[in-house]
Design a binder for these strands. Structure first.
Lengths: 342, 342
DNA sequence: CTGTTAGCGCGTTCAG
DNA sequence: CTGAACGCGCTAACAG
């Protein structure tokens, strides 16, 4: 019966105004809670809005206010661990503040990252959070200066505006290493990534510091390079074990690698943790699900996300310095993989 | 030196026009590739755009075209398995089509879901994808009819416009069950959720059908209710084992529950798969990382996400019926937890 | 307390 | 092929 009601245009503020014989401005006032107006008027307007199902058009509003009430989160790949939790923190914080959030993922591709940035610029987002940015400093700087405030997660950008959220990779790694050292283990190895980037080098720094603190010589030959995955950890560990060098403890770059390494060790007949203790990094859900469960460095991802939006909203509101660094401390989470049974 | 350059307003189309002494219209034409114009003119415009760093204002554009080039994805919780992969599929599809995507998560809260829908309505998004909607049919119907096209994932909505993407839960569950039955197992149990919802009942249907096909009586006392988590699976399995009833095979609602159950069985001294075979559902990454690795029903989440956007873009373009159901078939993934060693 | 007048930046007519 | 006028829906100034 209902005749084809194709894209029926939504009601405008004008429609509401005419519906009750008032001016647009009055409607606008009650919608935005600005200025004083009679309660009875407010009531009438509110019920008219209700009746017509009026929703203020954010596009029009943004056009005049130069504020879109939108922020964006750029991640390399939302399916990778870390990002979903960060995204949740961002979403929650934004939601509470009345902001909507764009999600863009870049597939670790610089061009796509730049492209996303430009598109967001077109949408006039009020601010952007970028996780593990791949673009170079100049591009970032340009975006920050010309388009919108930026919060960086996992990337330090010296001399550039924008706030940086930086999980304490060095301290976390130190925590992990010290934990093994306190267990009396001395033949440690580190399984990291192929190419050193900022995160990797910080983690190795923490590892090395603790080694030296315990008077264990740091041997770069005992820092293995692995592909960033379960498989990568497996391969690296298997290859190392075949060398026959002594090892009683493994510090891994992240949980996936750690679990891969653990699996390889088990397959090679090592008992965990009796023969070999392993500790990961990240505090992923998986770490509790594997058997033996994996000790790890718990990174408070959700609060990283939340902190990131809060900082961003501050930047947007202009109530804060244009740059700064927020450090977030990870915690040691001890599980079976480093617990000698008594 | 650069004097405080606070929110320097971005250049408008007018700025570009004046910069090279042409009219706005000309600029607009080259930006939108409409109408014919001299190549030399196009060149000049393009380089001016480049030089000034001009980005068309999507807000203004959307205001006049009634198209925002934005779609939204609503999920209960982006940190739950499934959603990140779906989100990635959505993002990729949208990106290629020149759309940006809003992500909103609802924490499984109906009010927040409605709120998100309204906010998106305000942003004049061109369409919305909702995963596991919690809102009632009426609210959905209202949104669909008055605001934007909707694609539903994991929710059948009879008699309502909008496209539905429905993974074959029944066939997947049947696949899992049949797999165990073919292994010669007959004392099966099913570990599902507390409260039956659409997905749960479909899965149980597939389970039951296969049981009957193999002349194994279906006993509702052997359908366990668990909280949807690793812990939940663990508890349910532990409680069941304490009852002492015979069991040689477990079909689980999802991978987390399956892994929890597996852990409980191992803790109770059962060997897997020798004493007990377990199969999950979902094809999560974890399933390959646990030991023994978990057989599962692999759901092509990425392509579900991709399919969802494609359908949505079709709806937006109006080139397609206003409703329909797209079924996606999951596949059996055999791993150690159901592989008798020979 | 409420109404009137301007644009915000852009695409779309319609004349040149 | 190009320029001028109009309006998308809304808020910010001013009036009244």
């Amino acid at each position: 019966m209902t005749e084809g009601d194709p894209p029926r245009k939504p009601p405008t503020i004008e429609d509401v105004a005419r519906h009750i014989g008032l001016s647009r401005q009055t409607i606008s006032r009650v919608v935005n809670n600005k200025g004083k107006l009679r309660d009875s008027t407010r009531e009438r307007v509110l019920s008219a809005i209700q009746e017509l199902g009026y929703r203020p058009n954010s596009l029009a509003r943004g056009l005049v206010t130069s504020k879109s009430q939108v922020v964006a989160l750029i991640v390399p790949d939302i399916t990778q661990p870390f990002y979903p939790q960060i995204a949740k923190g961002v979403e929650d914080g934004a939601y509470e503040a009345g902001y909507s959030v764009f999600l863009s993922h870049t597939a670790g591709n610089v061009d796509r990252e730049i492209n996303a940035l430009e598109r967001l610029q077109g949408h006039r987002v009020d601010g952007v959070i970028i996780c593990n940015p791949r673009v170079d400093d100049a591009a970032l700087d340009q975006a920050i200066n010309n388009a919108f405030p930026v919060v960086l997660v996992n990337r330090k950008l010296p001399g550039v505006r924008g706030t940086v959220i930086w999980p304490g990779y060095d301290s976390g790694s130190a925590l992990a290493t010290e934990h093994l050292l306190q267990l009396g283990l001395r033949d440690l190895i580190y399984i990291g990534l192929e190419r050193g980037h900022q995160v990797q080098s910080e983690k190795i720094r923490g590892y090395r510091e603790q080694l030296e603190r315990y008077n264990v010589p740091f041997d770069s030959g005992r820092v293995l390079a692995a592909v960033e995955s379960f498989q990568g950890g497996y391969e690296a560990m298997r290859a190392f074990l075949e060398r026959g060098d002594a090892v009683d403890g493994v510090v891994a770059f992240n949980d996936s690698i750690a679990i891969g390494a653990m699996r390889a060790a088990l397959d090679a007949g090592r008992r965990i943790p009796e023969d070999l203790a392993i500790i990961g990094f990240g505090g992923s859900e998986v770490s509790a699900m594997v058997s033996p469960s994996l000790s790890t460095i718990d990174v408070p991802l959700y609060s990283i996300g939340r902190t990131a939006v809060m900082e961003l909203l501050n930047l947007i509101a202009g109530t804060e310095e244009q740059h700064g660094e927020v450090h977030i401390s990870p915690k040691l989470q001890v599980r079976e993989s480093t617990t000698k049974k008594t």
